[in-house]
Design a protein around this nucleic acid. Structure first.
Lengths: 131, 131
DNA sequence: ATAATTATTAAAGTGAACTTGAAGTCAAGA
DNA sequence: TCTTGACTTCAAGTTCACTTTAATAATTAT
């Protein structure tokens, strides 16, 4: 199994080399080095990056993803890690959804229904709708 | 009608004086000055700030709010301004909601159901669920 | 051998909406 | 008058996940 250059990894994982260097700088992935200093990646980094992208899609920050990998006792099963972290995240996401739904409401039922001629009037017009 | 100091306005509008100075710096609100240089605000600034906060709750950026006030021909009725700007914003917000719902799905149906022992396995385990 | 490509680093930049800090000035009450 | 407390400006800091830049070095292809 050949080792991969940073460019090859970037290509396969569909991200930029700068992102890989950034991940390394925060300790999220690691690479070995040639004598010259160039990075060489093991194939397994691709799985690691897939998991990182998966976690990002679920709304985790890179700091949280780092915690996912490194803040549990080494033998902790993956599903336990997800359990622990996904529960909290769900609460956050639900908050996000609620906020966005509230914005949608305000836009549809408030601002798009408004008949004020001046914006100054709107200081009252909307609040009257929510007693 | 007495004019208001920046501290009084901040108190009544529930924001910091730094926010008021920032709004002024970007041209969102204005204030007159005493000879000494201190700001004095007209009562009407409170309505203006109410509208700003309303628009922010609906998801508008301060740049967009500035456009709401200043980028239309002067006689444009408020409701027309809202119409124009709220439609686009609704599209954005719907996108936001979809993204958040997708995260929720992934958390609930993917990560919380996962039985993998290692995170490396998870590189496959989730994608298998979505053919 | 040489040209073209890809790699290296550290530091600074991005966007959004402010906040913080430093250093100094003004206003009002005792 | 003195002392608080509120005010002033300007620049830099905050958060997040990277990207960009610049100057240089190594690898690969011809």
């Amino acid at each position: 199994m050949p080792e991969l250059t940073i460019g090859e990894v970037a290509h396969q994982a569909k991200l930029r080399t700068s992102a890989l260097r950034y991940y390394e700088s925060i300790g999220l992935v690691s690479a070995s080095r040639r004598v010259s200093g160039q990075r060489r990646y093991d194939q397994s980094v691709l799985q690691r990056l897939t998991v990182i992208q998966l976690a990002q899609e679920a709304g985790f920050t890179v700091a949280e993803i780092k915690a996912l990998f490194f803040s549990f006792p080494p033998e902790t099963p993956a599903f336990e890690r997800w359990q622990a972290m996904a529960k909290e995240k769900l609460v956050q996401i639900n908050g996000l959804i609620q906020k966005a739904e509230a914005m949608k409401m305000l836009l549809e039922e408030g601002l798009l229904q408004c008949r004020c001629l001046t914006l100054e009037e709107c200081a009252q017009c909307i609040s009257e709708r929510q007693p």
